[in-house]
């Protein structure tokens, strides 16, 4: 088929290209969705009316919608699918599969809105310089290909299944995860036992960008940092800090690459990272949400991440009363409780 002069224009408008999604089918998020779907009733158990509707002559689709009879995968799947879209997947993706069925995370009213003020970008740059220097003096060994990186994470987010967080109640969930050094396997706890992930899983973004350049500019470029894509690159860099143990040189480069991203600002004063004081640095999204990485004030090591609203914002949607999310409302707080290199999944450092 001959291509047309407008094809390239249309192509340029694609939000995402299939090439960018390579490997997504193997991610835990996508695996979870497949697993969820295969627990649905096999077709011979369908009610007759559904079967009749489904039998529309073999034409693709049909205007059918799985009714409430079918358990439509809920937030877990949403997180899963959406998490899969970005190069970064919030840890919750795996967490869903790991929580024993029926286990409810404890709920708490959570922090009341607090007043947040941001410092200058120059100050953030200064902090990142120090973090890079501190990283250079750490003696860390990156994991070997057959070793595993263990992480334990704790996530505080809305107890409600979806939507912007307007305030409490919050719930906190914790999970442990092992990622193999080569990034090709992962394991999590399921029903109290470490369970290996799918063979083709590329759960670790670190593996995708390997080898990580030690030149900050080259690193930023490799994670896609360019005008219009800085937020994504920032998130990827933060994920690299979160998920893996890096050599001193690489970790320093990650901090320096973050420094190259325009608009990173520090939170004035200390941030509460689940009881530990932390330095907060972040990018402001849409002028109202500060997406932060939290660092240890002594060692400048990664402590966690937080998303917090820095400006009140009112939302209106059709057929629903408008509502306001107040400035200082915590949207998400994720803390890395532990990280270490071990020899096999199930082991803790």
């Amino acid at each position: 088929m001959k291509s047309h002069s407008t094809d390239d224009l249309v192509r340029s408008m694609a939000r995402v290209h299939d090439e960018n999604l390579a490997g997504f089918a193997g991610r835990p998020a996508a695996r979870d969705l497949a697993g969820d779907i295969m627990t649905l009733a096999p077709p011979e158990e369908f009610h007759a009316d559904t079967a009749a509707r489904a039998g529309d002559g073999g034409r693709a689709g049909g205007p059918e919608r799985p009714s409430r009879r079918f358990h439509l995968p809920g937030l877990g799947v949403r997180l899963a699918v959406v998490g899969a879209m970005a190069a970064i997947a919030v840890g919750g993706v795996v967490l869903r599969a790991d929580l024993p069925v029926g286990e409810k995370a404890p709920e708490s009213p959570g922090p009341a809105p607090q007043s947040i003020s941001l410092g200058s970008a120059a100050k953030a740059a200064h902090v990142l310089d120090r973090a890079a220097k501190a990283a250079e003096t750490r003696s860390l060994d990156a994991p070997g290909h057959r070793q595993w990186v263990y992480t334990k994470m704790k996530l505080t987010s809305s107890a409600k299944p979806a939507g912007l967080v307007r305030g409490g109640p919050y719930k906190t969930e914790a999970w442990e995860l092992w990622r193999r050094g080569d990034g090709k396997q992962f394991a999590g706890f399921k029903n109290g036992k470490p369970q290996p992930g799918h063979e083709t899983v590329s759960s670790s973004v670190a593996a995708k960008y390997r080898p990580l350049p030690s030149d900050p500019e080259a690193l930023l470029q490799k994670v896609g940092g360019s005008k219009g894509h800085y937020f994504m690159a920032y998130q990827t860099l933060v994920t690299l800090l979160r998920d893996t143990v890096h050599s001193a040189e690489t970790e320093a480069a990650i901090f320096r690459a973050i420094k190259l991203i325009p608009g990173v600002t520090p939170v004035e004063g200390r941030v509460d990272a689940a009881g530990r004081p932390a330095i907060g640095l972040g990018l402001t999204v849409d002028g109202w949400l500060h997406e932060e990485v939290l660092l240890d004030p002594e060692t400048y090591a990664y402590l966690g991440e937080r998303a917090i609203t820095i400006r009140s914002r009112t939302f209106e949607s059709e057929g629903e009363p408008a509502y306001t999310v107040k400035a200082g409302t915590l949207q998400r707080l994720m803390v890395r409780v532990a990280i270490g290199v071990v020899d096999k999944p199930g082991q803790r450092p």
Binding site: S12, M13, A162
Partner: peptide
């Protein structure tokens, strides 16, 4: 959709992956 408004982080992730500099252009 009305009852579950968008979760901000998810929306931002999409916005990030789908950053589209020509969205507001005459072509779009």
């Amino acid at each position: 959709r009305r009852t579950t408004s968008l979760r901000h982080d998810l929306r931002d992730e999409i916005a990030a992956v789908a950053a589209d500099p020509v969205e507001a252009s005459a072509i779009a």
